[in-house]
Structure formats: C-alpha cells, structure tokens
Write a protein that binds this DNA or RNA. Structure first.
Lengths: 250, 250
DNA sequence: CCGCAGAGTTGAACGTGTTCAACTATAGGT
DNA sequence: ACCTATAGTTGAACACGTTCAACTCTGCGG
C-alpha cells in the first residue's frame, strides 16, 4: 500500500510515436481495441485475424494498423490491462500481516486475473517471451511496468510482520521472479481449473516464507551474500552513459 | 557418466507419421535439413523463408513440407542437435569430482554449444515456449529429451563428492530447472559475448553448492520437505490410466 | 515388355500479417 | 466562402507459411 502509482502512470503508452489523439481518433482506437479484446477472449489469438477485427469494428485493415503497429501490439494492451487488474485485486487481498498469507494472496490474485484467458495464454506468451518484444518482462520498454510489478511485492514484504533480514533489499525482486515462474507454469498447466498451479502457489509461499526465516540465522550469511551477487548479475544493467565496446551485436 | 543413452535414442524422431525412408527420400530430407540449418545459422529464423530453403536445396516448397510438417519442425531438429552437442561437451568437461566445478562446467558447456545461434535465439525460443509445441521442454512429446537432460544433471550429482543429503532425489531436477532459467536469461542477454550469462552461471553454481551443503544440516528438514512437495506439484503428472474428470478444457 | 502401386515431387492457390500511396474529412486561418 | 495542413481512412498489393490435387519416378510381379 505505498510506493507506486506514478510508476503505473508511466507504464501505459508503451508504443511510442503512434497516434492516439484526443478527438475522433481516440474513439476509433478504442473501438478497435475493444473489438480485438473481445475476439481474443472468445475466439483466441490465432483465430482472430486482423481482417476480422477490422470488419467487426467497421473499419478498414489499414486503419487498424494506423493505431496499432502490429497484432502483437494489441496483445500488449492486454497485458497492461491484466497487470492493472492484478494490482487492484492484490490491494483487496493484502489485509493480513502474515507474510505467507500476503505472498500467497498476491500470487493467487494474479492467477485469478489471468484465468479467463488461460485457453489462449499459449498464443499470448510467445509475444511476451520474445526478447525483441516490448512486452517482454525483461525489455527496456517495460521498465516501468516491471518496477510496478516489483513494487507490488515490495508491498507484500513491507506490510508484513516478517523481518526479512539480510534479504530485505532483494526480496521483492525474488518474489517477482517466483511470480514469473508460476505464471510460466500456469500457461502450461492443463489440469482442470489449473488446480495444479494453485497447489504450486501454496507450496511456494510456504517454502519461501521458511527460507526467509532461515536466512536470518547467522550461518546463512554466505548464502544471502551469494544471492545478492547473483541478483546483481541478473538485474538488468542500468543504462550507462554511452560508448559500448565489443561486438555487441544487432 | 551413466544412466542414459537409450533415453537419448528415444529422444529422436519426435514427429510421428512423417516419412523418412531409407532410400531416395532420406537424402532429400537430409539435404533440406542441412540447407535449412545453414540458412538459420547465417540469416536467422525469420529471414529464412521456406521458399528460400526449397530454392537453395533445389526442391519445391511442397517437397519440403512432405518431410517437415512445418517450419517449426525444422527448428526442433535444431534443438535435438544442440542437446546432443551439449551432452558431448558435458562428457568432456565432467572430469573433476568437485560439485561446483561439475555443475558449472555443464552449464557453461550448454551455453558454449548454443553460442553460435545467440543472435537468432530470440526467434527460436518462441517455438520452444509454446505449450502446444512438441519442442516445449514441458510437453509430453519431449518426455524422452527431458529425461535425457535431467539425466545429464544426475551425472553431475552422482559423479561428484558432494553428499546431497535429503535433496538427493530431487537435486537433478532442480539443477535442470536452474539450467532452463539460465537459458532463458541467455536468450535475453545482450552483453558482449553474453558475458553476463557467464557470470550468472558462476554465481549460480556457487550458490547452489552452498545451499545443498546447508540442506544437510538438521534444521533444514522442513525446508527440504517443502522442496520435495513443491517439486511434486511441479512435476508433470504421470499419464494416469483413463477417466479424467472435470471441465478439463484445452 | 507391360501394368501398377506407392514413394517422391510439383507449383498453383489459399489465408494470413503487414505496407503504402492515395483518398476523404475536419478544423483553423484568411 | 475558400484554402490548406493535418488527422483519419481506404483497399489493393506484397511476402509469407501452408495445403493439396495432380504429376513423375521407381521397382517389381506377371
């Protein structure tokens, strides 16, 4: 219950240079987006064609491309909507002060939010996993969205009664990584109602809680230090000044 | 240095029902495959079109589709080749008996094997991440390949001098999961020569080694039990008899 | 030598995501 | 009222992955 809300504002508007206009264009844009969302929801990603969207929305294909650079860009709006929904649900669920409950609750809230789209998650995720895609959780474009997500887990930690000890600085990021892993599992989970993901969430929350407690014991110094440097490696390099060296590529 | 080699044999031949023939067809198939591999390597996935492959190989497009059901199927062969290469490199590297060295070595060997294709890994991975894809590490079709990969890490554990304690049963699978994570990171790693992935590997090996040692301490019982049940949730459900209940879906 | 079954092979055709030069509508200045 | 710059819009056209009915080739029994 703190920290963010401007991070979120920045998280919108990932696609630069594309028109949105305040006038007539905005309504067309919204119309196309809603049509696409609806079609994604009840026909799936692959079976929704750009021509379908355009025809249903009563515009031309070219017009859709005027507002959205690609079909994938339509999916990105989807992600943004889901993340916003997750934040909202999480806020409703973060009542207890027990760490396990809080973490568990936020994880379940995320899965709850995504549930309606599980059948098509498989098509969506390939958009998110592509390093070149702006909606990749690791891309530079989604820095703001990532910060918002990590902030969500910072709330989990800070609002709890658990003393995170030496992990304090890194814990929110670790929890976020766990959430990503669970999401990945959820996508592949074909069990009825994704029941296995629910079980996995419970196991994960229990385990993580215990590990955090253990990490405060004196013997854990070396391990927590290792985790710190591992996360340092993992963390996206802050955008340095200029002058990169090496073959770097692309 | 044990365990497998028949698992591997089964790992081939993922696509069922497709011709391979012993005679004329086999050479055409090989020709198409080699052409595709070469083109993937030096033009990338997206910029390699099926028409290109066919023209360069001197066959028709339809013919290529006679041997490979899709462009993605061509990529799957790629994965198989890389995994085989990984196993070979790993065998050369598994000389020490020190656990950290062994684990570290196998991880580096994997990245070494993939290195030439890093520029196009981004295009490839979307094929692997798709749950519907047979080359997904979690798919039923790749059970054999998965078993072989986990077997590789079983060799890491069993050939080492580390006593894995209560984690023994689960450790190989955990190491494999770590390897998957590192691969995912590698795909997104834009640092020169993927240096950051190399650092991450070293950090990971050190941390995992320490955690395994810690897990043998008496106070870790609860944690290792949790890990066991978490992995039980994680593990793909063995194909049960019949009669599934529920809305199941797809 | 013929016939023929099956493997091997062809290329036109389909539906897709995407592009773009051209068109129309709108608003603000004169 | 006219002009004009800009926003909004169009649909034909392109390159791609994929399909398929039709074709050719090969080996073999009669």
């Amino acid at each position: 219950m703190s920290s963010d809300s401007d991070e979120v504002a920045q998280a919108r508007d990932g696609a630069v240079g594309r028109p949105d206009g305040g006038g007539r264009g905005a309504v067309t844009r919204a119309l196309i987006l809603e049509t696409a969302m609806a079609s994604f929801r009840d026909r799936g990603y692959d079976r929704t064609t750009m021509r379908d969207i355009a025809r249903t929305a009563g515009v031309s294909v070219g017009n859709a491309y005027h507002y959205f650079g690609s079909k994938e860009e339509l999916v990105q709006e989807f992600y943004a909507a889901i993340q916003a929904g997750h934040r909202q649900r999480a806020a409703e669920v973060l009542t207890s002060r027990d760490f396990t409950d809080r973490f568990r609750g936020v994880l379940h809230a995320g899965v709850d939010e995504m549930a309606p789209y599980h059948a098509f998650a498989g098509s969506f995720i390939k958009v998110a996993i592509l390093p070149s895609s702006p909606s990749s959780p690791f891309s530079a474009e989604s820095t703001a969205a990532r910060a918002a997500a990590v902030g969500l887990f910072r709330d989990v930690v800070e609002g709890s009664d658990k003393r995170p000890g030496p992990l304090a600085r890194n814990l929110p990021e670790l929890l976020w990584l766990a959430y990503l892993g669970i999401t990945l599992f959820w996508v592949h989970d074909t069990s009825p109602n994704q029941a296995r993901t629910r079980r996995l969430i419970d196991s994960t929350a229990r385990l993580v809680s215990r590990l955090v407690s253990l990490s405060r014991l004196p013997g854990s110094r070396l391990v927590t230090d290792d985790i710190g440097s591992l996360l340092a490696d993992l963390r996206l390099p802050e955008v340095k000044a200029a002058g990169r060296i090496g073959t770097s590529a692309r």
